[in-house]
Design a protein around this nucleic acid. Structure first.
Lengths: 210, 210
DNA sequence: CCAAAAGTGTTGGCTGTACACCCATGT
DNA sequence: ACATGGGTGTACAGCCAACACTTTTGG
């Protein structure tokens, strides 16, 4: 048993409906048939871990050019044998095209009140959430959760959904602007029936650490 | 090739001779026979990743109760096929008993001026060093690099060896003491031919984050 | 004119950094 | 007596958190 099955798991987060959501699928095979779990699967021959994670993410969301990072490698999720390398990804819900399978559809689930999941996948999600919260404080990862153009209020709502608590508006804007990770586009958003908002975009659409 | 060989690698750091050192071995088998590399090996049947890393660490140093953390999982170190899960460990050099094999002995090598290593192991060490430097700033990991009792000057030298730059003595002491991670033992060190130093010990001999 | 969200500054506390001298010991 | 490392305090600057009102728009 020295050569072992190697799988990748992907924790795909998005912010939607004011909350942080994670993508779950319904398993169509044993073990844990019909239980909910994270998307994942075995490596193809010759495939690297990163490639497998990108492939899985693409399968489920149709996206490839988003934040995707290795999280942790588990060897005890199925009790024995298999090694599972977990990744986590951040996607803009408005850009995703969820897979439409004959079997149970994948769907978004709020990270508050997760149901019971196969293979202790709750632990994997908890770990990913910790990492995401930490990275929010010292990197621009949120670029991958929003459309190209967005208002500072939208950005703040995204941060609040992840942090799980309200943030002070003036302090938030001061901090984001002083970090110089976003720039105004010159355009304004007329969406909503309220005062139009200045739109911004991230200077870099790839991970940057402060 | 879906089931794959799974190996663990261990980056074992210590501070000695005023510098940060890493444990290297000389390979006795192909590929890269006779090249230097990190210690590592395949998982035994039924063994978890953590268990394999602990076993490897014990093989090389005789230590088991030290800081050991998963680092990253590589799938391209040997060009193809094998998956290598890297761990990193911190040991007190005065407590280690290096393995004495018939083959080439393991030995400490300063992380400044590493030689060429098998399997791009330099990259693994660089990554581990980044992580170590980061953790030094927000955790008590240094507990695993020092004997039970130590002076604040010793602790400072340890921090300086890892950071790679001198630190201000008064600021260092203020910070460490205000973090409340160490406590005085009441004993003093008469070692050296100079003024005796107050000895301290870590309150927790396990990882704590600030 | 009302509801809803956008936008905007100041203050006080805390934290991190720079900086220099005296003391105890062994040789 | 001198060389070596141990031990100590202050002052300034930058950062973060708390806090409330005005403006613009659509309905």
């Amino acid at each position: 048993m020295t050569p072992r099955p190697v799988a990748v798991l992907v924790v795909i987060f998005t912010v939607s409906a004011g909350g942080l959501q994670v993508l779950l699928i319904r398993r169509s095979a044993e073990p844990f048939k019909d239980a909910l779990s994270l998307p994942g699967g075995l490596l193809n021959p010759g495939e690297s871990l990163q490639d497998a994670a990108v492939r899985k993410l693409d399968d489920e969301t149709g996206l490839t050019d988003v934040f995707l990072e290795q999280l942790y490698t588990f060897s005890d999720l199925d009790g024995r044998g298999a090694v599972a390398v977990a990744y986590f990804a951040l996607v803009d819900v408005s850009a995703t095209h969820l897979a439409r399978r004959r079997e149970w559809l994948p769907g978004w689930c709020p990270v508050q009140n997760l149901p019971d999941l196969a293979f202790h996948n709750e632990d994997v999600i908890d770990y990913a959430l910790q990492r995401l919260r930490a990275k929010l404080d010292y990197s621009n990862v949120a670029y991958s959760l929003l459309p190209e153009e967005f208002s500072l209020s939208q950005l703040q709502r995204t941060y609040e959904a992840i942090a799980g608590r309200p943030l002070d508006k003036r302090n938030f804007r001061k901090r984001i602007l002083s970090l110089d990770i976003v720039e105004p586009t010159g355009r304004v958003a007329s969406e909503g029936r309220h005062r139009p908002a200045q739109l911004y975009r991230f200077r870099e659409r790839k991970p940057v650490v402060f």
